[in-house]
């Protein structure tokens, strides 16, 4: 049957496109990073060695492999250096931010899902609206708000709430504010999509069976929104761990985050190899939550069938 063959190849192409995309733009660059992470720094261009010289044939390949080493990983994982601390502090900051995002995002998503149907698209629009300006500009704007002479301090001083300006900028607090602000849509959207699907007659049924509405929230609404909670939390947690711009612009010199360390290692210490090792380790660290996220997604697809 020629039809089946055509259909098969058409399908193959459709499936192949995203895989080729991932292969070319994710897997190959990542493998290059892995390769650099097991190389050594030299003053040259490119600034690492060894390079694979295929003209020397088999011997070249052997030579090449023998020169690879895990020294960079020992360097990064050594307690003498700041990286372990930075990894730990990144995880802590990302975790606390995720909890804060949940606390702020859940009520917003809940109110959106409960709003009249007719205004829900508008509310969704408003959540997405910040994406229309550059992320960098929005983070810079927070400097203007949070600094000593910033809008917030001026307003509080004018209102007489405080006598001396608050020191917020260049502290961890500013980092939390920046992360919660920037990542809020990533928390609100999956939560909204989970809450919006919730059948309101379930709450009526609970109430009918003797359950006041406050308790019905914890017994019905919240458990049924857990896939949204998990999706939102991971969608925020994963990029927050590697966040660089926000701690760099809003955090203090003592705010440690792995993204910042990586940047310093790459630009100031000019070590391609050890910064690659930092990146590879970061990815390994995040594989666990990413796999969890994938699992939840797959399960939701199953349930939706």
């Amino acid at each position: 049957m020629p039809m089946a063959g055509e259909k098969g190849s058409g399908r193959l192409i459709v499936i192949a496109i995203p895989y080729l995309w991932l292969l070319a733009l994710f897997l190959v660059p990542f493998l290059i990073v892995v390769k650099i992470s097991v190389s050594q720094d030299i003053l040259a261009s490119p600034p690492y060695t060894p390079l694979l010289d295929l003209s020397q044939g088999w011997a070249g390949l052997k030579d090449y492999v023998s020169q690879l080493s895990f020294d960079n990983y020992f360097y990064v994982l050594s307690f003498d250096n700041e990286f372990i601390g930075a990894y730990g502090s990144s995880l802590v900051i990302a975790s606390i931010s995720t909890v804060l995002l949940l606390l702020v995002g859940y009520p917003i998503a809940y109110a959106m899902a409960r709003a009249p149907r007719s205004i829900q698209p508008t509310l969704l629009m408003l959540v997405i609206l910040p994406f229309w300006t550059s992320f960098l500009i929005r983070v810079y704007a927070w400097i203007g708000i949070l600094s000593q002479e910033g809008l917030l301090n001026q307003a509080l001083l004018a209102l007489g709430v405080i006598d001396t300006p608050l020191e917020i900028l260049n502290t961890d607090l500013a980092v939390y504010i920046g992360i919660v602000y920037s990542y809020l849509p990533f928390m609100v959207l999956p939560l909204y999509s989970a809450l919006e699907k919730l059948d309101p007659t379930l709450l009526e049924a609970a109430e009918d069976l003797g359950c006041p509405s406050a308790r019905a929230f914890w017994l019905i609404t919240f458990p049924l929104s857990l896939p949204g909670v998990a999706a939102g939390a991971l969608l925020c947690f994963i990029p927050a761990v590697g966040e660089f711009v926000i701690p760099d612009l809003l955090g203090g010199s003592d705010t440690m985050m792995i993204g910042k360390s990586l940047w310093t290692e790459f630009t100031v210490n000019r070590s391609w190899t050890s910064s690659s090792a930092v990146a590879v380790l970061l990815l390994l660290l995040l594989v666990v939550p990413i796999v969890i996220y994938q699992n939840i997604q797959a399960r939701q697809l199953e349930a939706g069938k």
Binding site: D199, T201, L202, A205
Partner: peptide
């Protein structure tokens, strides 16, 4: 108590 048209079972 009410038995709902959609049953409204807690999934």
């Amino acid at each position: 108590n009410m038995m709902f048209q959609s049953y409204a079972l807690f999934p």
